[in-house]
Design a binder for these strands. Structure first.
Lengths: 205, 205
DNA sequence: GCGGATTACGTGACATGTCAAGCATAAGCC
DNA sequence: GGCTTATGCTTGACATGTCACGTAATCCGC
């Protein structure tokens, strides 16, 4: 990771509306003032937060946000083991990406790969003892970071409106997003998701 | 580009709180319910949105979100030309990343690179005619996407609370984030930012 | 103006992600 | 059983990003 954004960001360049046009909102035009304000705030938080999370994980636990997502999902499963497809769906990745990444993590001893007994085609990604320890050691710090950086700035009374707003945005995304599968993963009701949650059972210092 | 997340996401695995512990909130513990709700919503929107933006830009204009950020920032500058450092600061990248990326974009004719006259050390990244056309053609669709996917789901009355909440989060991020520069960019008050804005002067359909 | 910081970049090696194929096992079907 | 299809992954080539370092142009005191 690495990146950096000093202390402030100018609004200039983020222009989500024309620099000239005074139009009130052509329906199919630019973002109006209220929208632009929300959009800028959203984008800035997003970029900064990803940077911070990556950095903290890297510094404290020598792992990337990607590693965290994988370990977290595995740690959450009962058997601490999931097939590539299931795990990929869980964290929203493409299988090939996970295939590559899992192999690297296996190289570092965080997980191990083995052909499944039930289905010889399937590969099980299993959390190793070392992987679990790593995860449990990293969890507290990550949760702490989120509480500090994200929630430290949200007034209690805005928490509910924030959730509500984001939830509607998400619902809308699901309803109107495109999403033709990159592969042909995720059958009908496949449970996708489970991502970047903060923390996992155990751990804590 | 490429990824996919079917229709829904399970909450399972996102676990931002322990699976057992009943603790009310150990101060240095896990996220409480309200926080977890907001966090899950935030993460899900973030992942999905990035996926959608990348996809739309790729499909409609053969460009990545990264290309968009670069073109957008250049398009916003008066001279349609910025030095590598300035541009990197604008969009929040590391200079080396921009260096690599700009070279590729130059290969595709979207920008051109030239040593600055004023400072022989500096390299100017300039928007080419083709680059501008590409940007202006892509802008409407991108803005449209954001209005549809993001704002299509936000009830008007929640827009202000949403902005306020995100702005406080951002302010908090600036105040408590780490951020030791990856390089030693950004002198003191350097205006950093300007990112992924949607749209640019001109364009429109 | 000379020598040592500083600043602005470019590079090379390597980590990560994406895409298009390819391979093996499983399922269906007759 | 033997074929055709579907499923589950892995690979290889290549696009992108990150890091550590190297080089050239400026700036600063003296």
């Amino acid at each position: 990771m690495g990146r950096r954004a000093d202390d402030g960001w100018t609004e200039e360049g983020l222009h989500v509306m024309p620099r000239k046009r005074p139009a009130p909102e052509p329906a199919t035009g630019w973002l109006d003032e209220e929208q632009q304000r929300a959009w800028l705030a959203y984008i800035k938080v997003q970029l900064r937060l990803v940077y911070e999370m990556n950095r903290q994980l890297q510094a404290d636990s020598r792992m990337s946000l990607a590693d965290w997502d994988v370990l977290t999902a595995l740690g959450a499963s009962e058997s601490a083991s999931l097939t590539v497809t299931a795990l990929a769906a869980q964290i929203g990745w493409e299988r090939s990406r996970l295939s590559h990444h899992a192999k690297r993590m296996a190289g570092r001893g965080l997980v191990e790969l083995a052909t499944a007994n039930s289905d010889r085609r399937a590969t099980e990604v299993r959390l190793t003892a070392e992987g679990r320890v790593t995860l449990e050691r990293a969890a507290p710090g990550h949760v702490e970071l989120i509480k500090r950086l994200f929630f430290g700035g949200v007034p209690r009374e805005l928490l509910d409106p924030l959730s509500t707003a984001l939830e509607s945005v998400y619902a809308n995304l699901l309803a109107h997003g495109s999403l033709p599968p990159p592969d042909s993963l995720y059958a009908d009701g496949a449970a996708v998701d489970a991502v970047r949650g903060a923390g996992d059972g155990a751990g804590a210092d």
